[in-house]
Design a protein around this nucleic acid. Sequence first.
DNA 1: CGATTTATATACCAATCGGTACTGAAACAA
DNA 2: TTGTTTCAGTACCGATTGGTATATAAATCG
Lengths: 203, 203
Amino acid sequence: MELAAQAPVKGRPREFCTEAALAAALRVFWGKGYEGASLTDLTEAMGITRPSLYAAFGNKESLFRQALDLYEREKLAYIREALKAPTARQVAEQLLRGALDSMCSDCEPKGCLRVISSVACGTEAESVREEVIARRVSSQRAVIERFEQAKREGDLPASVSAEDLATYLSTLLQGIAVQAGAGVPRAQLDRLVDTSLSLWPGR
Amino acid sequence: MELAAQAPVKGRPREFCTEAALAAALRVFWGKGYEGASLTDLTEAMGITRPSLYAAFGNKESLFRQALDLYEREKLAYIREALKAPTARQVAEQLLRGALDSMCSDCEPKGCLRVISSVACGTEAESVREEVIARRVSSQRAVIERFEQAKREGDLPASVSAEDLATYLSTLLQGIAVQAGAGVPRAQLDRLVDTSLSLWPGR
DNA sequence: CGATTTATATACCAATCGGTACTGAAACAA
DNA sequence: TTGTTTCAGTACCGATTGGTATATAAATCG
């Protein structure tokens, strides 16, 4: 089965690497949000012209969705890893520290693409906003299920609600995204994570 | 001393109430952010024409600053009250519950004007963004000082850093703003506040 | 060699952005 | 009344938005 159907090689081959161009687009969306990123911003960063962008990626919204896929696949990989940690506390710690690494990289935009895309702005981005929010809900559900498992395994007190604790953790993570995006230095956010973990319930 | 210099009554009087118009503008900015709010959105909500807006408020950025002043004066009044509470725990509780009331009103936009204005978007809003962030820093400093007082008074353990705890609380509040703006129902956020308070250090 | 297919590049589209000239209308002082 | 001053409304400005028509260049197929 030839999954990666390796090309009907007819016609002129494209002169740019779509993956590299998509990665460049991701950085623009990540830094400026969906509406804040103009086609001029995007094409300049991607090093291609407007018609090339439309031929390769459809339109702006489709490009954003593909960039969002890439973001979740590469920059949010720590979430999948964190959920495998042995205790709820370690899950929380890996989520917090992983988020911090992702949001405070020196060579990439500060903050979280999901947060900046769900907070901003006008009516044009409504459907984009809704999809980003839906994806966040899906991530949160995974955390809830992990915490329910933790309660069964006893490393989370039976008195706490898995859903409420997951909401609490998500709120912290989104707050961290706002802080990172606003330029709060990483050292301060590291202490913030320490503080949060010192308050975390149970062992 | 006639502070509110009651009008050089020459010329045609304006036909609209500037305070009501400013309140209408505030709701638009609050719901859509600075860049998301177009002049058409604003003038329609305010019930005035474009030249009237410019004559009365200067320009879009100046209008936003005046709306931000109004927002902090009326919708963020709970912050000043919360800082007067007798213990650090009660300060935190009043800040969290006050923020929730402000961000989840049925007749006003969900979320926080400061957060939506600092997260969004393009380059046009850069100076606006910086001012909003600066105002948030100033609020946080007040919380830090209140917590230092709490440490001196003994209702906060000497082992915790007032600055770190204030950063933690700000992060929670900003995360709440993201959640509220994303449409998370109030009941869930109420439980979130309960969870946060159950984890709050000391008595 | 054509013929076909696909990508690139220029140059453009209507719509919207924030902001303003300009024409009248409505109030005052003289 | 006659100026003078200020506000309201229409109609417009250049710039930018997301998106395309068109013409040409580069590849394979026959």
